[in-house]
Amino acid sequence: MPLSRRGLLTIGAGLAATVAAGTSRASAAAGRFDLAAPATQLIWKKALYDETVLQSFAFDNPKGHIYAVQLKNGAASAAAGDLCLTRLSLSGAVLGHMYLKGFGHGVQIGVESPGVLWTETDAAPDSSGAMWGRRLARFSFADGRTLTPSSSGVTTYTPIPGATNTTCAIDPSTGRLTMRYLLDGRMRYAVYELSALKAGGKDKLYDVAQPSGLGVFQGYASYGDHLYLLDGTAYSASNPAPGNTYITCVDLRTGAQMQRSLTQAGKSLDYREPEGMAIQIVSGAPRLCLGLASGAAGARKASIFYKSALV
C-alpha cells in the first residue's frame, strides 16, 4: 500500500528515535578530557558527616546528589575497615549518612541511579594491616542505617575470583562498571557492562594494567573508552604548593597512556590531599571531577573540582 506523506514522517520520526536511543550513550562518551585544561570549583571546603579525610565520591546525576565515603571516626574503625557514607546536595549540604562496617578503605565508589551504591566489601588486611575489600557490594542508600557485608539488602559480586583490593567506579554515560583489582601482584582495571554484571555475567569488555610511574594512588574514573587515574600526596615540607597531584589518562582499548598532567586545582587549600574521582553529567555534558581533602586533623573538609574540555 502506498505511504502518505504523514506516514513517511511518522516512520522517519520513529527511526530517528530508535537510532537516538541506541546511540545516545555512545555519543555522550565520545572523546577524552584534556587534562591540561584548567579546573573549575564545584564545592569548596564542605564538612562530611564524620570528620576524617574524604576517600572518594560519586554522583547520582539524575537525583542531583553526591555520595562521599571516608573512614569512620576512630582508630579502631579504620583498623576494621569501617566506612562512613555521606549523601550531599550539589552545593555540599549534608543530606544523610550510613555506616559500612568491615567494607574496606573506600578508595573509589560508584553510583547506579537512583540511590544505589557500589563499593568494595568483605575487607581483609594486607601485609601492613591496611584493610581492603575482596568483593564488590551493591546496596540502596538508607539514611542512618549501618550495614555489614552480610546485611540484608547487600548483594555481593566476585567477578574475578582470587582478586583483592577490589574497588569500582561507574561511567554514567555508558552504563559500564570499572573494577580496579590486585591479582598475582599486579594492579589492573576490568570493565563490565553493568547490566550483565548484575545478572551474574563475568565477561570483560576491557582489562588493562595500571601504568607504572604513578605516585601514591588516590582514585579513578572512566568515561567512554578512557580511564582517568589520580595520584599524589598531601602538602608537606617535602611537597609544598602546588603539590604533586597528577591525573593520567589511559586508553582502555589498548592500555596505552594518553596524557599525564599536574593539576593545581585548589592549590590554595591547606593540607590538600587528592582523594577520589567521578564523572558528573550536567545538561548532557560530562565533567571529570577530582576530590581534595583539607583542614586540620579531626576537622577535615572536602572540595571538588572539575575539568570539562574534551579533545
Rank of each mutant, 00 (worst) to 15 (best):
residue 253 R to W: 09
residue 131 M to C: 06
residue 224 G to W: 05
residue 130 A to N: 15
residue 49 Y to Q: 14
residue 135 R to G: 01
residue 40 T to K: 13
residue 288 L to E: 01
residue 3 L to C: 04
residue 245 T to P: 04
residue 83 L to H: 11
residue 188 R to A: 15
residue 162 G to F: 04
residue 11 I to T: 09
residue 113 S to V: 01
residue 301 K to A: 13
residue 280 Q to H: 14
residue 70 Q to K: 10
residue 152 S to R: 12
residue 281 I to L: 15
residue 193 E to R: 14
residue 252 L to M: 04
residue 58 A to S: 09
residue 100 L to P: 12
residue 205 L to T: 11
residue 242 P to S: 03
residue 173 S to K: 07
residue 93 A to Q: 14
residue 183 L to W: 00
residue 181 Y to M: 06
residue 102 G to I: 06
residue 307 K to H: 08
residue 228 Y to R: 03
residue 131 M to P: 09
residue 205 L to G: 10
residue 236 S to Q: 00
residue 305 F to S: 06
residue 80 A to F: 04
residue 262 L to W: 13
residue 225 D to P: 05
residue 44 W to A: 07
residue 24 S to D: 14
residue 155 T to Q: 08
residue 87 R to W: 02
residue 62 P to W: 02
residue 113 S to D: 12
residue 27 S to T: 10
residue 207 D to S: 11
residue 209 A to S: 15
residue 54 L to D: 07
residue 8 L to T: 09
residue 52 T to D: 13
residue 159 P to F: 00
residue 112 E to Y: 10
residue 150 S to H: 02
residue 307 K to L: 14
residue 253 R to V: 10
residue 286 P to R: 03
residue 86 T to Y: 03
residue 176 R to P: 05
residue 104 G to W: 06
residue 282 V to N: 12
residue 131 M to Y: 07
residue 92 G to C: 07
residue 31 G to A: 00
residue 197 L to A: 07
residue 189 Y to R: 05
residue 102 G to R: 03
residue 157 Y to V: 02
residue 110 G to E: 09
residue 279 I to P: 09
residue 18 T to P: 08
residue 49 Y to H: 15
residue 231 D to W: 02
residue 309 A to R: 15
residue 253 R to G: 09
residue 179 M to P: 09
residue 208 V to F: 10
residue 280 Q to L: 13
residue 247 I to T: 09
residue 58 A to I: 00
residue 257 Q to R: 13
residue 28 A to R: 11
residue 104 G to V: 01
residue 7 G to M: 12
residue 70 Q to I: 02
residue 154 V to E: 08
residue 164 T to Y: 06
residue 143 D to T: 08
residue 311 V to A: 15
residue 285 A to H: 15
residue 245 T to L: 00
residue 109 I to L: 14
residue 46 K to E: 13
residue 25 R to T: 09
residue 293 A to Q: 13
residue 40 T to C: 02
residue 106 G to Y: 08
residue 165 N to H: 14
residue 82 D to K: 07
residue 96 G to Q: 02
residue 223 Y to P: 07
